[in-house]
């Protein structure tokens, strides 16, 4: 609903309903969940609502958050991207293997993984967009290929870099105005994708394709390039995450990115994106990512074991989505 005079927005969401409080609550459901959890945690622990702890949460979620933003863009276009974990691993491993010990190599260790990530994404997008192939199968296939190639490249061994340049270290460890640098990356990627999806023709078309590709084609949208772009965005996002992760860890297991696709998808789903495409909001995904981060943080504050975290995370996911779904049913 970008502008008041938009006739399509007018028809989809009538003016009278736009100010309806119930609708607003159900639409912004995920933020309410986040707020409720933050209130609860602040009441339970005095250590939660401190600037340093909140910044810590933000820093910790930024890696999975950047991935999730890419995944939601693809999902709005009606497709899945299950290869992001592999792409993240690829970017991280290549970034370390470039050995960023001098300025030129530092530049390479950022640019090469980024290019590879975009390449993997574009390949996914080309196969899915041009051939209209099943996105789950294609991206799972790509996941196998990329993971295999990474393991082959490093012969299954850990990779490490010593004496990395301060600039490279600052990518994950630096602070600007008291806020960790990865948070800026996260917020920048989120803002950029939100802008793309809400204020540009690109976003409109991707949404249209996700809603009904046949209809989008019939009104003259070239479906394939848009799908390709969404995957390129997702690949780029995953590789940015990989580079940040590499800069943080610097001693990498070549299977480091396994499972990131599901964490990202969980956040996206918490953010209320529709899995069949056409609906989804980058900012809601941000909220979903923050919810996951707040849960993990709360668990750590109370010293609960990791396995218990998994359990609680799953329960909250199901509960939030079930409540959200029942709300949408009521709205209908």
């Amino acid at each position: 609903m970008s502008s008041e005079s938009d006739p399509i927005a007018e028809r989809v969401v009538p003016r009278s309903r736009r100010v309806n409080l119930t609708v607003l609550i159900w639409r912004e459901w995920v933020w309410l969940v986040l707020a409720a959890m933050m209130v609860l945690l602040s009441a339970l622990s005095s250590n939660f609502l401190t600037t340093s702890n909140l910044l810590n949460v933000l820093r910790q979620v930024s890696i999975v958050g950047i991935v999730a933003v890419g995944v939601v863009v693809v999902l709005i276009g009606g497709n899945f991207d299950l290869s992001v974990g592999a792409t993240l691993t690829l970017a991280a491993v290549v970034s370390v293997q470039m050995q960023p010990t001098d300025p030129v190599r530092t530049a390479l260790s950022i640019l090469v993984p980024l290019a590879l990530g975009i390449g993997v994404g574009a390949t996914n997008g080309a196969i899915i967009g041009l051939l209209r192939a099943n996105s789950i199968i294609v991206t799972v296939g790509m996941q196998f290929v990329v993971t295999g190639c990474v393991l082959l490249y490093v012969a299954g061994q850990h990779v490490r870099v010593d004496n990395a340049t301060p600039f490279y270290l600052a990518l994950s460890g630096g602070y600007l105005l008291g806020v960790p640098i990865p948070v800026y990356f996260f917020l920048f990627v989120t803002g950029l994708c939100h802008f793309l999806m809400t204020r540009t023709l690109f976003g409109r078309y991707v949404r249209a394709i996700g809603g009904n590709p046949e209809a989008a084609r019939l009104i003259g949208v070239a479906v394939a390039p848009y799908i390709l772009f969404t995957y390129a965005i997702s690949g780029a996002a995953a590789s940015v995450s990989g580079i940040v992760l590499a800069s943080r860890v610097r001693n990498l297991d070549p299977t480091v990115g396994i499972g990131y696709e599901f964490s990202a998808l969980t956040a996206v789903v918490l953010g209320g994106a529709r899995l069949s495409g056409g609906q989804g909001d980058v900012l809601h995904t941000l909220a979903g990512v923050l919810i996951l981060g707040v849960i993990a943080n709360g668990m750590r504050l109370f010293n609960l074991p990791f396995n218990m975290q998994l359990l609680v995370q799953g329960v909250i996911l199901v509960a939030a989505v079930a409540l959200g779904a029942s709300g949408k049913v009521g709205e209908r």
Binding site: P305, N307, L311, Q313, G314, L317, V321, A322, V329
Partner: peptide, 21 residues
Amino acid sequence: RVNPFIATLGSMIVVRGLVMT
């Protein structure tokens, strides 16, 4: 009326957490 993908993703995580715990 939760989407099957999400519902079973949730139970996947919950059950795994239960077993691991």
